Simulated assay, not measured.
Amino acid sequence: MSNWFETLEGIHTQIWDTLVQGVVDANHPARQPTFATVSPDNWPEARTVVLRGSDSEAATIWVHTDLHSDKIRSLQTTPRAALHIWDADQALQIRLQAEVEIESGPTLRPIWDNIPDHSKQSYGVTPPPGTPIDTGLDYVKDPNPDTFAMLHCQITHIDAVHLGEQHRRASFSRHRQWTGQWLSP
């Protein structure tokens, strides 16, 4: 029997297993990927987000955010993102490219209603996120479902590197129907 990193199919399966673990296990490294966008003035921006869902069949992941966050402005200008995950236990780096759709409004109310109260504190800050303030705590948290949004990330490309004893790198893309391609690491 081969190790998962020895075949393209094994790597692809491991990527999605890792993403699923990031959704269900709050302590898993995939739980908090780096999410990168391009600002309206063309500067790269990276921040940590919490992975809230993944669907390997649809090649989609999703995260929650505040409608007033900088990432929303960036995604309204350029609706694309890159995500990065490093799982040291597996020696696995996953880079994802995605087209992003912003969803907000009353259709998300059932999701909002199931968010724990302590997590709702992240949606509805006055003044809005990124606004200059006089002191470090010169803001008020007022949970507001009207500022809650979900980012649906339709994966278009995956690049994975296994940094084991022998390094292996593989690429998968939607336009190749997710058929893998080995790359030089």
Rank of each mutant, 00 (worst) to 15 (best):
S2I: 11
H84Y: 14
A91I: 08
A82C: 03
L83N: 05
A88W: 01
A81E: 06
V125I: 13
P29F: 07
H64I: 04
S69K: 02
D17I: 14
R73H: 12
D25R: 06
E103V: 10
I85G: 00
L19H: 03
V125L: 05
P145E: 11
P143F: 08
R80F: 07
W178V: 07
Q90L: 15
Y123H: 01
I158F: 04
W16H: 05
S104P: 05
W4I: 07
R176I: 15
T147S: 14
H84N: 09
E45D: 09
F148G: 04
L67H: 05
N42Q: 14
H152F: 08
T77G: 06
L108P: 13
G130V: 01
R52D: 04
F5V: 03
K141W: 03
L92W: 07
V20A: 12
R73I: 10
P79C: 05
G124W: 04
H12A: 06
R47V: 05
S171Q: 14
G105T: 00
L92P: 04
R47S: 11
L75V: 00
Q90G: 09
D113L: 08
H157P: 07
N42Y: 15
E45R: 15
Q177A: 15
R168M: 13
W16T: 06
V23H: 02
G10R: 06
H68A: 15
T78V: 10
S74Y: 01
A149W: 03
P44H: 00
S122T: 05
R109P: 09
D117R: 11
I72V: 02
D87K: 01
P44S: 00
G164H: 06
I158G: 03
D17N: 14
W86E: 09
H84L: 13
L75T: 01
T156R: 13
Q21M: 10
P33A: 00
S122F: 11
L137S: 13
P44M: 03
W112P: 11
T107C: 10
L67Y: 02
D87Q: 02
T37L: 00
I111W: 09
P127E: 02
S184P: 15
H162W: 09
T13V: 13
I155V: 14
P129K: 02
D159G: 04
V63C: 02
P106S: 09
A26S: 10
S39C: 07
E99P: 04
S74D: 05
L92T: 06
F172H: 01
R168S: 11
D117M: 12
A91C: 06
G180T: 05
I133R: 02
G130Q: 00
N144M: 00
P33Q: 01
P127V: 02
Q166P: 04
S184K: 12
R47M: 06
D142R: 07
S104N: 13
L8E: 12
D25C: 07
T135E: 15
V161Q: 09
L137A: 14
F148N: 01
E165L: 08
R95Y: 07
L67N: 02
P129N: 07
A58F: 02
T131W: 09
W43Y: 12
L51K: 00
S122M: 08
N27R: 08
A160C: 04
H68G: 15
E165W: 11
Q14W: 05
D113I: 04
